[in-house]
Structure formats: C-alpha cells, structure tokens
Design a protein around this nucleic acid. Structure first.
Lengths: 151, 151
DNA sequence: CTTGCTGCAAAGTGTTTGCATACAT
DNA sequence: ATGTATGCAAACACTTTGCAGCAAG
C-alpha cells in the first residue's frame, strides 16, 4: 500500500508535476480505501490531516490523476462522480466490476467470474478495435438492480 | 416502429397515466432514433412539433418512462444523462453495448459479439445474484477509448 | 527565484422542486 | 368535474473557472 503510493508519487514527479501536500494526501486517501469515493468524500477525509484543503484542489487533483492513468473515474448514476485508484501492476489480478443498487446507490465490487470474463472481453475488445477503428483503453461491466436491503 | 409506439402508449394508459401531447411526442422522438439523446436533445427535437414543451416536462416524462421500464438511462461520463428506448420484445435481439470515445464523447452501439457475451453474462448474473443476494435487473458493458477521429 | 499549485469566490451546467394553470379522462 | 400533468421560475447539487497569493523545485 505504501509501496504503491511511492510508486505513484514517483510517477508524478517523473512527469514533472510537483509533489504537494494536497496531492500526497489525496493519493493516500484513495490508496487506503477500497470504496468508491466522491470528490466530497475525499475532501472530507483529507480535511482531517490537512484542514486547509479546498474542494477545488480535490477536483483538479483528481482530474490530473485520471489523466495520468492513476485513478479511474466512474459515473454510477447518482449524479456525482466516483474515483478509484487504479491497481496497475503487471498482473492485474485486482481488476473488478460493479454491482449497483438502483435504489440506494450502493456499489459492490466483485472479482468473481473475472477469469471467465477475461478471455471473452479480450476477444471482443480486439474485434471492436478492428471493426470500428477504435483504440480501446478500458472497459466497465456493471449490473444494476436491487441490493439485499432494497429488494 | 409505429407499432412499438402504440404498444408503449397502451402500457402507459393501462397503468393509469394520461396520454398527453408531450408524452406522445417524447415517445415518438425516442422511438425514431437509434441515438443516445440527452434531455436537451429531446427537448429541442420535440419543440419542433410542440413548441410549448418545457424542459421540466421532458425530465419528468423521462423519469416516468424509466420507472416504467420503457426507457433506459445511461451515464456515459460527459456530465449529462442519455436516454434510449428499451426494445423489450420477447426475443431481445436488439440488445447492444457501447463503445465510448473519451475525447469527443461519441457513443457507438455495437451488437457484434453479443451472442458470445450472452451466455457468459447470464451465468455471471446468476452467480452474482446468489452470491450477493442481489436482484439484477439490467447490465451494461462499455468500452472506453479513442474513436477513429480522435486517436 | 520562478512557475506550478492552491484556495477562495463566483460562474456554469445539468437537473429538480414549488406552484398556479391547463387539460385528459 | 376532478385530479393529473404541464410550464415557468427559482432552487439545487456538482463541477469548473478566474485570479491573487503561496510554496515546491
């Protein structure tokens, strides 16, 4: 976890970006959790060890991280964006998809069935790239429905 | 196409909702296109044959249609919601997924590879339902990347 | 030192709500 | 006639932008 932080910090500085307190803290917050944090969530969390933080900075930092490929931005349908750190090790065995409750907007990560999905997705990806002359960078699979509390 | 409209109109009245000019017109607009329309798009389109329409009504109508399962709402990541009519015939051979350009936000429907996906998805769906006690209603698969114009 | 980064305030954008009027049934 | 549906204006929630000061390198 700390190792990943250092790796990502280096990625930043290597690209000529400055390593500031807000950036470090936002990275740490994202790194520490498996949840799908909104900008507001992150703002609140970072505020604890760095009260001077501004929401604007959170947005700008997240935008930077997304551009750097360090963070993935999601829209789950409740009007605010969610952010998750990208686990981008050689063997990406933490790749996952989402299960979203349309009522309470809870989001569950699942990694089950990923193996079976992998081959199919790879094939599909290649096919689509060729067919539509598209450069595919990422994909999402999401199942929508009612979670156990809401059904 | 017209047949589908009548079917959906009946679905509305059967549920006790009134068949009004805005609703008919919005339905027609959604039905006529294969595109992913935003509320604004629909508003503009409907304005042509019904200039008195208000954006509010468009939103409220879409919300109703979504609740009725007649329309599917998507978030593709450009900040505005998109709406597509649900083709909900017994054999849902028009089911499709999306290819989204992260730069120009173009969205391409694809139906290729759907057959292969179908079995896997069905299995996954069943597995997830059981595992997480989730009642799955729908799913989306989206590939993100750069379209031929933007790459 | 220099220039990128930050925080504040203000503006922007898409969507929702309150309310009086209009209209489908 | 009755109550749902509409349209307007205003409110909202999230995100972005402009700008002067701050601090990382």
């Amino acid at each position: 976890m700390e190792k990943r932080d250092l790796f990502l910090q280096k990625k930043l500085t290597d690209s000529g970006f400055r390593l500031t307190k807000p950036r470090r803290s936002i990275l740490k917050t994202l790194s520490r959790t498996r949840e799908h944090l909104s900008a507001e969530d992150i703002y609140r969390e970072v505020s604890r060890d760095y009260p001077a933080i501004g929401l604007t900075t959170v947005y700008r930092t997240l935008e930077l991280f997304v551009r750097m490929g360090m963070v993935q931005k999601y829209e789950f349908g409740d009007g605010r964006s969610r952010y998750e750190i990208v686990v981008d090790t050689p063997r990406d065995d933490e790749h996952h998809h989402h299960l979203i409750c349309t009522k309470c907007h809870r989001v569950i990560d699942y990694t089950d069935f990923i193996e079976q999905e992998k081959d199919l997705l790879k094939e599909t990806e290649e096919g689509l790239s060729r067919l539509y002359n598209f450069e595919i960078r990422s994909h999402t699979i999401a199942f929508y429905g009612l979670c156990e509390n809401c059904r």
